[in-house]
C-alpha cells in the first residue's frame, strides 16, 4: 500500500521536474491568466458602475470572487488530462500505459499534481500574493474557513479532473474530439461559476446549474472563500461536492473500463 503510494508519488516528482524544463510554458500560462483576470475585472467594474451592490452582492465581494476564481483556474489549467489523453491516443503512445502495472487514471492524477504544484509554487502563489496585497479582497477570516475552502477547492479539482478525463477518454471512440471538447469547456466555463457566479443567473439557469456537477468546481469554493457561503450553509454545499465527486469518479472508472477494452493503436 505504502509502496504503491510511493510509486504514484514518483510520477508527481517526475512531472514537477519536467515542468521545470519548460519554464516558458509556465510564464505564458501566467500571462494568459493575468490577461483574463484583467478582462473580467474590467467587465465586472463596468457592470457595477454606479452601484454599490447588485442583488446584495457588493463590488468588493464580486472582486474577491473573481480574484480567487482566477487563482483557482490558474491552478486547474496547469493540469491537462484531456489534452494529454488525446495526444496519447492520437500518437498511439497509449499502448505503453496498458503495459504498466498501475492504474492509468490514477497515475495521470498524480502526474498532474506534479505540474500543478510546480506551477502553483513558482507562478500562481507569488502572483496572487502580490495581487491580493494590491486589491485587498475579502479573504477567509478564520482557520476553519481557510480549511473548509481548501477542502472544497480540492474536491472541486477532483470533480473537474474526473469529468475532464472522462471527456478525454471519448477519444478512444471518436479519435477527433473537437466537438466533445467544446461542449466540455463551454459547460465548465458557464455552469461552474468560473467568471459569473450562479446567483446572477436567471432563475431557470440557476436551477439547471444547481442540478449539474460543475458548480462544485469553482462556485462553491469561491463562495466559501469570500464568505458568501458560511456557517450551516457550507455543509450541504460540501455534501453536494462529495456526492458529485463519487458520481463523476464512478463515471470515469466506467468509461475507462469500456475504453481500455476498445483500444485502437494508431500508427501500427
Amino acid at each position: 500500500m505504502m509502496k504503491t503510494f510511493k510509486m504514484y508519488l514518483e510520477f508527481t516528482r517526475k512531472s514537477f521536474q519536467r515542468s521545470a524544463a519548460y519554464r516558458v510554458d509556465s510564464w505564458s500560462r501566467i500571462i494568459g491568466n493575468i490577461m483574463s483576470l484583467g478582462i473580467w475585472g474590467c467587465i465586472w467594474f463596468a457592470l457595477y458602475h454606479g452601484h454599490d451592490s447588485v442583488e446584495n452582492i457588493s463590488f468588493q465581494s464580486m472582486l474577491s470572487y473573481i480574484l480567487i476564481s482566477m487563482a483557482l483556474q490558474g491552478i486547474h489549467n496547469a493540469g491537462t488530462p484531456l489534452w494529454e489523453i488525446q495526444y496519447r491516443v492520437r500518437t498511439g503512445d497509449i499502448a505503453f500505459e496498458m503495459l504498466r502495472p498501475y492504474d492509468y487514471p490514477l497515475r495521470m492524477l498524480f502526474t498532474d499534481l506534479g505540474s500543478i504544484s510546480f506551477h502553483f509554487v513558482t507562478a500562481i502563489l507569488p502572483l496572487y500574493i502580490v495581487i491580493f496585497a494590491l486589491f485587498q479582497p475579502d479573504i477567509p477570516l478564520s482557520a476553519s474557513q481557510w480549511g473548509l475552502f481548501i477542502l472544497s477547492a480540492a474536491l472541486g479539482y477532483l470533480i473537474r479532473y474526473s469529468l475532464e478525463l472522462t471527456f478525454g477518454l471519448f477519444t478512444f471512440w471518436l479519435i477527433e474530439t473537437g466537438g466533445v471538447e467544446d461542449v466540455f469547456y463551454f459547460s465548465i466555463s458557464l455552469f461552474s461559476g468560473s467568471v459569473v457566479p450562479l446567483w446572477f443567473f436567471p432563475d431557470w439557469l440557476e436551477r439547471l446549474a444547481s442540478l449539474l456537477p460543475f458548480q462544485g468546481i469553482y462556485f462553491i469554493p469561491n463562495a466559501i472563500f469570500i464568505g458568501e457561503l458560511s456557517g450551516q450553509e457550507i455543509w450541504p454545499a460540501l455534501l453536494n461536492q462529495v456526492i458529485w465527486l463519487i458520481i463523476c469518479y464512478g463515471l470515469l472508472r466506467f468509461v475507462w473500463n469500456k475504453a481500455s477494452m476498445k483500444i485502437v493503436v494508431q500508427g501500427g
Binding site: 517526475k14 519536467r18 500518437t91 498511439g92 503512445d93 499502448a95 505503453f96 496498458m98 503495459l99 504498466r100 502495472p101 498501475y102 481500455s260 500508427g267 501500427g268
Partner: peptide, 19 residues
C-alpha cells in the same frame, strides 16, 4: 493486464517508453 505487465518487457522500435 497489470499482472501480465510484470512478466513481459516490450520495445516498439518506432515509439519510446522513456520520458
Amino acid at each position: 493486464r497489470r499482472r501480465n505487465a510484470r512478466q513481459i518487457g516490450v520495445v516498439f522500435g518506432q515509439r519510446t517508453q522513456l520520458w
